[in-house]
Design a protein around this nucleic acid. Structure first.
Lengths: 336, 336
DNA sequence: TTGTAGGCGTTATCAC
DNA sequence: GTGATAACGCCTACAA
């Protein structure tokens, strides 16, 4: 392993001069710089980041903890984050929690966190009761909904209520009267399910429609979940003419199940998702959805993390950002 | 930041004893161990990996360079790799190259590589002419096809020729006679396109069918690419009754375009993909495909990397592994 | 403009 | 069983 002192020896200068050249500091003559760079090239010297980290106290690495990266939503999130972080000079370690509370806590608690300058934690199962754990010395930004606010974390959220409300309202405007909600799960907890359920109910109530409990079908946020939810209604003979799916993956699964049962979308049932994953442009029919402002969310998360790493915000000042949301109309609700 | 020496002081022992406890070494009495662990807990001590890395010379980090992680194929690859690597005690830094040769080389050349114990490089644009660059002091495993073999790298590949041949043969057995290839690009280079094209031709020839150049449509390995390829045939009025798509994403795009043109799959045209991404189970119709043995490939890559990191293989001994492939029959070719 | 000394936190070695 | 010491490679001060 080539070290600075070997380069220094080869170039006939001191270690410090090599360091200055490597880090682009001033006060190095052109001649010296050239000699050093030549030696660097010749010997194949590369900075040892471990030593640099030890010295500087920072690692240049951000952790990203998500349930599973092989999922359209989290894949897109990770892709954006890695790209933007790279521009800021950070690399990203991806941890998969499998959406278990245990692993989400693990991402915080494990010794490995000493490796990160900051952590972006996409919480799914982490609830209010765990918020204390987030008070670590590690800068953390929570990305998700399972926190009711007022907690000791910076937080980036989606417009869950408003998005689900707009999606439901859109179906109502398109003439639907019996609108199912796939992924619904009313409850006191603050999470994507309950917030979107609230938005769904809000739109129904605003339109003078009665929420029918049998149309609020809980399901996993996955294609399999969406397919199962749709099948359960179809098999039960419960009529519906619209489906608000709480994620695009749920919607894709629902489209699949509807196709299996020979139900025409959008003619007999209109379907809308939530997330605006790229996939939705290519389903048959293409999928209407709520775009939750991924790009803005990633930017906000990085900005918050950067501020905190740099100590630009006090221990007890916490920021909150909600992504802008937008209705995207495609074929599954009668769009072009 | 709590250090070992603070813990040592609190527990009334030396730093070395703390280190021994942390690392589970022998020769520590139970009483001492308990005292140390209590102090660790009380002070919230966490190992500083930078210092440990500096000392040990290894980082516990593997790099994974892929074109874009927000893609079903690479997402699945990354997910599997992160999971398996975690079990081996490694974390994974994901780099996105955008499939440019420049960035793929960058993943190798940049100073940052000193951060990795090893690198898994999913080559797309890196060709034979770059193989020399792979001769770095960093353990590297190439995952992909753009290398003709005999090079100075460990290499994990897919059964491209055989997979494409089996896919094509399957369409022929199902009665197709004018079979398009979306993503085809014959040529002397060794890459996924040309190898799969070769397999496609092989199956046609074996069956006594003439490869018709107008049916070999080059396209990007993406949904947009597949849609464009299918549209170009449809718009050109070129008849075809089968389509071998060189990736599942291409196939999903093709399904979309066929649906737009009112072409029934599988009745009028049978479609098969390559990769077996989860998505393909939920398309309408569900997608027949070639499963390339992802799991085995990831295991092989990690094993090779591990061997090399541990120095269990000589500088000039290089290994090569080809994943097992399997035909998966779903609705798009008349399956259940 | 260049060089010297010291320490970041950890662990291997070797005494005790 | 436990502890003192010396590195690992780099960079901030300070000195020359």
């Amino acid at each position: 392993m080539v070290t600075m002192s070997e380069v220094a020896k080869a170039a006939g200068v001191s270690v410090m001069t090599v360091s200055n050249v490597i880090n682009g500091h001033r006060y190095v003559s052109d001649a010296t710089r050239d000699r050093v760079l030549a030696a660097v090239d010749r010997l194949g010297y590369r900075v040892n980041v471990a030593a640099r980290s030890l010295r500087s106290g920072s690692t240049g690495i951000i952790g990203l903890a998500v349930p599973d990266i092989d999922t359209p939503y989290f894949g897109q999130l990770a892709s954006l984050l890695i790209e933007r972080a790279a521009r800021l000079g950070y690399q990203v370690v991806v941890e998969q929690t499998g959406a278990t509370r245990e692993n989400e806590l693990g991402a915080l608690a494990h010794s490995r966190v000493r490796r990160y300058d900051g952590l972006i934690l996409s919480t799914v199962e982490l609830g209010d009761e765990d918020a204390d754990q987030l008070r670590s010395d590690l800068p953390v930004v929570a990305l998700g909904e399972r926190l009711s606010g007022g907690h000791a974390v910076d937080h980036v959220a989606m417009a869950n209520v408003e998005g689900a409300r707009d999606a439901t309202r859109h179906l109502i405007e398109r003439g639907c009267r019996r609108i199912a909600a796939f992924g619904a799960q009313p409850g006191p907890e603050v999470n994507a399910n309950s917030l979107r359920t609230a938005g769904y109910h809000e739109a129904l109530t605003d339109a003078g429609l009665d929420p029918s409990p049998e149309l609020a079908v809980p399901c996993a946020f996955s294609m399999a979940g969406g397919a199962a939810a749709a099948r359960s209604l179809l098999a039960g003979g419960i009529p519906f003419d619209g489906a608000v799916c709480f994620t695009d993956t749920v919607a894709i699964g629902a489209l699949r199940a509807l196709a299996d049962h020979g139900v025409a979308v959008p003619d007999e049932v209109k379907v809308i998702g939530f997330d605006d994953v790229e996939q939705g442009r290519y389903t048959v029919p293409s999928l209407s959805t709520i775009a939750p402002g991924h790009s803005e969310m990633v930017d906000a998360a990085l900005r918050m993390l950067g501020d905190r790493i740099a100590g630009r915000r006090g221990e007890d000042e916490h920021e909150m950002f909600t992504g802008p949301h937008q209705l995207v109309i495609r074929q599954s609700t009668g769009g072009p």
